[in-house]
């Protein structure tokens, strides 16, 4: 059953995946096992995206399937959804309200086993700093689609420096116009050009 759930997700079959999750829950399947199956399916989706077999709509829809499935499974989970591989704070930087890319990255990170605190959109530099401190997160992911977001990313990195916590976090950036030049400008640690790269960066920095 777990295999078929992973299969439905990796084929981005929304109806099939949700029906299979419901069936498994009705049959008393181990909820943690189901979450693992969802993660395995999402991992395949990520691999296919990297190989350019899949494109953005496949990522968006599979993230939707994952979130809907987790919502079905959650009431059956006792405690957490499994051991966390680390904490990540994510948000769209100040002055920018775009969140599609950020939401996909947040879901992909959750799928990969990270505990994600999503601060939403238009997030002030200080909120990133405070939340990283509060959660003990050692990875902060900044998203932005606009070129004016470059300055907000730079300000956010500077806020960590000012708070004296820059050395305790790795800061990664992503979003449409982000590249090596922007990375250098903001003083972050790395950038990812798509959600798969964001997960790879988390694996690298939180290993």
């Amino acid at each position: 059953m777990s295999d078929s759930i992973a299969g439905f997700i990796s084929d981005v079959d929304e109806d099939g995946a949700l029906a299979e999750v419901r069936k498994a829950l009705d049959a008393g399947a181990d909820p943690l096992g189901l979450v693992e199956a969802l993660r395995a399916g999402m991992s395949t989706v990520g691999n296919r995206f990297e190989a350019r077999e899949y494109f953005l709509p496949d990522l968006i829809l599979s993230a939707e399937i994952f979130n809907q499935s987790v919502a079905l499974i959650e009431p059956h989970l006792k405690g957490t959804g499994g051991p966390s591989k680390g904490s990540v704070v994510i948000g769209t930087v100040q002055g920018d309200v775009h969140d599609i890319g950020k939401n996909i990255v947040a879901t992909m990170l959750r799928c990969a086993g990270y505990e994600v605190r999503d601060l939403g959109i238009d997030v002030a530099p200080g909120s990133f700093v405070d939340t990283a401190k509060e959660t003990g997160a050692s990875l902060v992911a900044l998203s932005g689609l606009l070129t004016v977001a470059f300055d907000s990313m730079k300000d956010t990195v500077a806020a960590f420096v000012e708070a004296g916590t820059r050395d305790s976090v790795k800061i990664i950036i992503g979003g449409g116009p982000v590249n090596e030049t922007v990375l250098e400008y903001c003083g972050a640690d790395a950038y990812g050009k798509d959600p798969s790269e964001a997960v790879a960066l988390a694996e690298r920095f939180l290993a």
């Binding site: 981005v12 929304e14 939707e64």
Partner: peptide
Amino acid sequence: GLVNFSRDLKK
């Protein structure tokens, strides 16, 4: 919207 349209593309 991107989420709806992603579903439309598939289905």
